[in-house]
Structures are given as structure tokens and as C-alpha cells.
Computed example of a mutant assay.
Amino acid sequence: MKILCWNCRGIGNPATVRELKQMLVANDPDIVFLCETKINANKFSSVRSRCKMEGCLAVNANGKSGGLVMMWKESNKVEVQTYSNNHINSIIKLENDNLIRFTGFYGNAKPNKRQCSWNMLRRVGQSVTEKWIIGGDFNAILDNAEKEGGRRKPSALMEDFREVVDELSMADLKTNNGWFTWVNNRDGTALVKERLDRFLMSANDVARFPFMETKVIRQSTSDHDAIILDTEGRKLRDRHRDPRLCFKYNVCWARDVEAKKIIKEAWQKGSTDIMGKIEMVGKKLGGWQYKKLKQMRTQMGTLQAHINKVIDSQGVRMRVISSKP
């Protein structure tokens, strides 16, 4: 199961919708939780349709702020229990009818109202008997290691957050890549980065998901990065067929000099039958594509690791977008 959470900072922007669709294609999540959609629920149906999600519950924005959405692939797999301006609480049916509780959460941005958000989580926790995952933008940090730049957070606010995490017996799930998930995009000494977005899981259940993986997904249209949790992320996939035999033509190969050479040589050799030639081209390109894609994935992984290192290093400003108030 994959769960994606993102503070999109307004879903009405076409560029934001495009970025969301790209994330869904690249990561294929089963559940999507969005906060700060900044639109009314009745205007979200077109976005859900474009994202090709069967199920959806949207909570109205409050004027030009707030607004929550939970979407899911299969309509019969998710049952929403409760919702408010700060959360959407659901039960997800897994394989073998196993149940897991997922609460999409948006912590109040105003420190003097933060306690109301924690109390809401406490109320949800009173009815939880299943494995429990909470994910979203908590608008809070657990300690000063989750903040760089700006004024230090009041100790009382961090203590309140730690207290509710302990009281609910939740474990903070560290991401496998990256650290900070929000940046204010200012220059010099005014630059601030914080780890506001995260997943929590019932501490007693973490060991039951040995292959679990959480990641930060870097964004360009929001000052928040998205986060994704995959309960089977580090599990080795079974491969029944040789991937070199599974060639799929991509139009970009037509511009590749090496691919052109392989096609030409394969076409000129062997069978004179058209279908035989096509089969030979596919066979030759299958091995080439396997090697090419493996190289590309390695290069992308290296670049992503470098990007994460740069973003999480001190005094670096990466994105130029509106800052969070």
C-alpha cells in the first residue's frame, strides 16, 4: 500500500494539477491526502477525474485558506469515518480483509490553536483498534534538529507535540531520503527550512512492516515537498520474465543514434519476412533498452541524492515560490 501526502498550497492552479498528476504517474499511490487545497469541495470533481481516482472526499476551504482532500484508487477499499477542517480519518481494507487506520492530518498553523489539533488527534485515537498511520503537514517540529535558520521554536510547542506522540504511542517514521520538507524561499540569513510533513505509525506495529519505506518527493509549485509511505517499498519484486525480452517502443528512441544503428542492422539481417524483421528488431532493442534504462535510473538516483544533499545543507535556497506566512 502506498500513501502520498502533500500540502499543495492551492489546487486551483493548472501547474499544481499537472505536478500532482506527474507525481501520481511516477509513484502510483493507492491513497492521496492533500491539504490547503484552497477550493470548495464541489469544485474538486474535475481534479479527481483528471487524477483517475475512484473514491474521493473533499472538505471545503475556509475562504482562501484550508481545504482537505482524500482520494483513493478503489472505491470499496476505503471507508471515511470522520473529518473536519484539520483531518480526514479513514479505514482501509488491505488484502485478506486486514484493516489499517489512516488519518490525513493538517495541524493548525497558528501556535495558539495548535492544542486544538492535538486534542482532535486524541479524540480519533480513542476509537482506534487497528494499525494506525497518521500523515500530512503537522505544522510543528519535535526538536530543533528539524529546523534550520530563523528563531528557535518555543520549547513548550515542541514539548506539546512530543507529548501527543507519546500519549498516542506513535513512532515518527524517518524518511529514507531528504530531511526538510518546507522552505520559506528567502535569501541569506532569512532562509528557514523545517521538517513539517511526516508520517507517524502506531509504535507496536512498525515491526510488522519490515519492508516499509518513506520518501520525500521534491516539488516546484509548492513550498512544501510531498511525502510518500510504501509498506512494501524495500521488498524485492519477483521477476518471472527476463526484462530484456519486454521491449516497449518509446518515441524518444527514434532520436537516439545508438537505437537507430541497432534498428538498421537488425532490419538488414536475417529473415526477409516483415514480421520476422520486426521480431528481430524487438529482440535486439530489448537488451539495449534494458541496459539503457538501468543506466538512466542510476544517473537519476545519483542526481536525486545530490539534490537532497544540497537542499538539506546549510544556507541553500532552491525554490522560488510564495513563502508560507
Rank of each mutant, 00 (worst) to 15 (best):
K2G: 07
L4K: 07
C5L: 09
C5E: 05
G10Q: 06
G12Q: 03
N13T: 10
Q22Y: 11
M23S: 10
D28N: 11
V32S: 02
E36I: 04
I39C: 06
N40E: 14
S46M: 10
R48S: 06
G55T: 02
N60D: 15
N62A: 15
G63N: 10
G63R: 11
M70V: 15
E74N: 13
E74D: 08
S75G: 00
S75R: 15
S75H: 11
K77I: 09
K77Q: 14
K77N: 07
V78D: 00
N85D: 08
I91A: 03
I92N: 00
E95H: 06
E95N: 13
N96A: 13
N96V: 09
D97M: 07
G104N: 12
A109W: 07
R114I: 00
W118G: 01
K131E: 13
G135M: 01
F138T: 04
I141V: 12
A145T: 13
E148W: 13
G149I: 00
R152N: 15
A156R: 10
L157R: 12
D166W: 02
E167G: 03
L168F: 07
S169G: 11
L173Q: 02
T175K: 08
T175W: 05
N176H: 10
N177I: 13
W182Y: 07
W182V: 00
K193I: 02
E194C: 09
D197Y: 04
N204K: 15
F209L: 12
F209D: 07
T214K: 07
V216Q: 05
S220V: 13
H224T: 07
D225R: 01
D225T: 08
D225C: 15
E232Y: 10
K235F: 02
L236C: 14
D238G: 13
H240A: 12
D242F: 08
P243F: 05
N250S: 14
R255T: 08
D256T: 03
V257F: 12
E258H: 11
K260S: 08
I262V: 14
K264P: 03
T272P: 01
M275E: 14
G276V: 05
L285M: 15
Q295A: 15
M300L: 15
G301I: 02
G301S: 12
L303D: 12
I307G: 00
V310T: 13
D312F: 01
G315R: 07
R317M: 04
R319V: 13
I321D: 06
S322Q: 14
